[in-house]
Design a protein around this nucleic acid. Sequence first.
DNA 1: TCGCCTATTTTTAGGAT
DNA 2: AATCCTAAAAATAGGCG
Lengths: 233, 233
Amino acid sequence: MVKIRKEKIKIRRIDYLPARQVTFSKRRRGIFKKAEELSILCESEVAVIIFSQTGKLFDFSSSSTKDVIARYKSHTGEKSNQSMLDQLQLEKENTIRLSKELEDKTRKLRHLKGEELQDLDLDELQKLEKLVEASHGRVMETKEKKIMSEIMALAKKGDELVEANNQLKQRMVMLSARGDIGPAAIMELENLNNGGEEGVTSESATNVTTSSNSPLSLEDDCSDILSLKLGLP
Amino acid sequence: MVKIRKEKIKIRRIDYLPARQVTFSKRRRGIFKKAEELSILCESEVAVIIFSQTGKLFDFSSSSTKDVIARYKSHTGEKSNQSMLDQLQLEKENTIRLSKELEDKTRKLRHLKGEELQDLDLDELQKLEKLVEASHGRVMETKEKKIMSEIMALAKKGDELVEANNQLKQRMVMLSARGDIGPAAIMELENLNNGGEEGVTSESATNVTTSSNSPLSLEDDCSDILSLKLGLP
DNA sequence: TCGCCTATTTTTAGGAT
DNA sequence: AATCCTAAAAATAGGCG
């Protein structure tokens, strides 16, 4: 029963481990008690979460710690785990749906390419054949239209070039008439631009408008034309 | 400076609202202070979450309430919001990837069906045409094979039926020879089974094995045959 | 709502078990 | 680690501004 002097302790880390552990235990209980009292006295919801230095978890709650945490999260504007789970579920269903669609399309694509036909019955094969035939027709048609329009574009460009050429030549002639350059240079130009043809002169420069190309029957097979790469936009 | 008698309070709901509010405020600060002291004295992580009766949130934490909550959740085996977010992100990327693939396949499918060809260039159109042609060939081939095999199956079934029929007739003849049924019934049977043909009798019943069908040239267009629905497995 | 006051209750440091 | 003891420290009920 020896009474020992005590003095107020400083709020700083307790260095002596056993003392620290004891204090932790005592004060922890103290806080939990206070928390409970507060929740009862004032009808409030209280949660206390404590991790000891060793990582051990101690928690108290007037109701359920998880509930209080959920309420805390909704208060701080965070999405709850539940709504997150819902979203995840939705995304997964989405993925499954997309996968199914993809599988279906992949299958159809194979069939249209003439692959894996063995799992089609006669009826389906007939429909597929009709489809492929129709498709072939449209592809041919589109291709021919495209070829025509590209040839037109080429022809137009050619005409424009001829026109530009003629205007250039006209200028050259005028310049040579004024003695700025010699006639030899003009000859050189003409040979460079139309190899072997009769020289296009200024008088025919205005009526090079339409259908000046070679005749082309697009009704026939024109795979030889197709094979040349048309470098137009 | 009048000294007033005080007595220990009971831990039960404080009915008088103003007193309750004051107590809430005082004790709340008390708990927070204790919590802080504990965290410092014992180097522990502490979080206190309090909801007042009016729904107002008060929280204290030695570090960050969210961190403590995350630690709490990982301790109680729940998935953290973060890992959930990661998962969600992953799913979303998955969805985007699938959507892109789907779009691509849809496009290709359209082209193979001869739709939306205008956004193909000449080169692509040519490749597509080749593909469709090849596909058409394979579809035709497969269809013909299928038709052949179905006809074979039909023929086989037919032969089996004829065979069964003959055996049945043979029995009938034997039965009639024993006087169990009259000859009129046999005639009736024969007329029912082969309308107009000469009666198939027991002596031809054993050699109905192969190629007893009508001649069919499958090399030609056989769309008229295709149109009849073959109800075989 | 807050701070201040003060008598009283409650908590707790330190020791011992 | 928990519990008891005790004196000192801290918290706080109730009142007042």
